[in-house]
């Protein structure tokens, strides 16, 4: 249960939600797609801290989703530049920020088949700040070159591309992405982990500063917001995540103590 942890202790999911929430920065509209419970927590945390800004669209939620024109509305919004931040993951992510949501091995007869590219092949191009996340930090997940490019990390000059990746968040560290150099740069290593561990478990080359900071731990107030306010809000889109990470019963729908914030 959320209240049972001693002061200052936090789960990796909570740290990652805090890191992603900071990466959202100042935005008018943040959207969260399929299978993205930690990004959803980050977006709801950012909205709570911002007193209702940014607008948050969680695709799998009924409550935190303002779309009334069907599934296309998110993509039309994004195409117009009305979406500032989105989150993408991949079965494989490579050193040039190419992502693979399709398969490993031969495409027509793969060794592993993932779910599919979802909106990535479009949103990666048109959303200015895409935050990548991968919850398995290993050499099979973070590879030198992906087997299938669902969406490329960078494009040539003549391709219409106002958007692209800004960062990659894993359970070990935070990377920033440099679109000019087409390379990741290690920004910080999470508490309890080391640069050596990151190097050992990363399949691609990356830049790193001589002095590497540690990712700040979430504050007591952040943890309170996540556990008491954000967690219940997550339950309609991600009931299993809300239950396993925060101990929210699956039928519970609203928080206690603080009034619910919805999009205005």
């Amino acid at each position: 249960m959320s209240g049972a942890r001693p002061d200052g202790e936090f789960r990796t999911e909570e740290l990652l939600a805090e890191v992603m929430s900071r990466l959202i920065g100042d935005a008018r509209h943040v959207a969260v797609g399929a299978q993205s419970p930690i990004p959803a927590a980050a977006a709801l945390l950012a909205r709570r801290r911002g007193g209702g800004r940014p607008w948050v669209s969680i695709l799998e939620s009924r409550t935190h989703n303002f779309f009334t024109d069907g599934g296309r509305e998110l993509f039309d919004c994004a195409g117009q530049g009305r979406l500032d931040v989105f989150f993408l993951s991949g079965g494989q992510i490579d050193g040039e920020a190419n992502i693979n949501l399709v398969s490993v091995g031969d495409y027509r007869k793969p060794k592993v088949r993932f779910s599919g590219s979802f909106g990535s092949a479009y949103l990666y191009f048109v959303v200015p700040r895409v935050i990548l996340f991968r919850l398995e930090h290993s050499r099979r997940a973070l590879v030198e070159k992906v087997d299938f490019i669902s969406a490329p990390g960078t494009s040539s000059q003549n391709v219409y591309r106002p958007g692209g990746p800004i960062a990659l968040v894993t359970p070990l560290c935070l990377f920033a992405f440099d679109r000019e150099k087409k390379r990741f740069r290690l920004q910080s290593v999470h508490p309890g982990h080391s640069v050596e561990e990151v190097i050992e478990n990363t399949g691609f080359d990356f830049d790193r500063p001589a002095q590497l900071p540690q990712t700040p731990a979430p504050s007591a107030e952040t943890l309170r917001l996540l556990r008491e306010v954000v967690a219940p809000e997550l339950a309609d889109a991600y009931p299993r995540f809300a239950a396993s990470v925060f101990g929210i019963p699956t039928q519970r729908r609203s928080g206690n103590g603080e009034a619910a914030i919805r999009n205005p």
Binding site: F75, G119, Y122, F125, I149, P152
Partner: peptide, 27 residues
């Protein structure tokens, strides 16, 4: 990709043979 399906159905809805879509290049 999601918006490609939506767009291709909108093309059919309008009775036009195709619709263009951004993104996708290099995928």
């Amino acid at each position: 990709t999601c918006p490609a399906l939506h767009a291709a159905l909108q093309a059919s809805e309008k009775g036009v043979p195709f619709l263009p879509l951004r993104g996708l290049l290099g995928s």
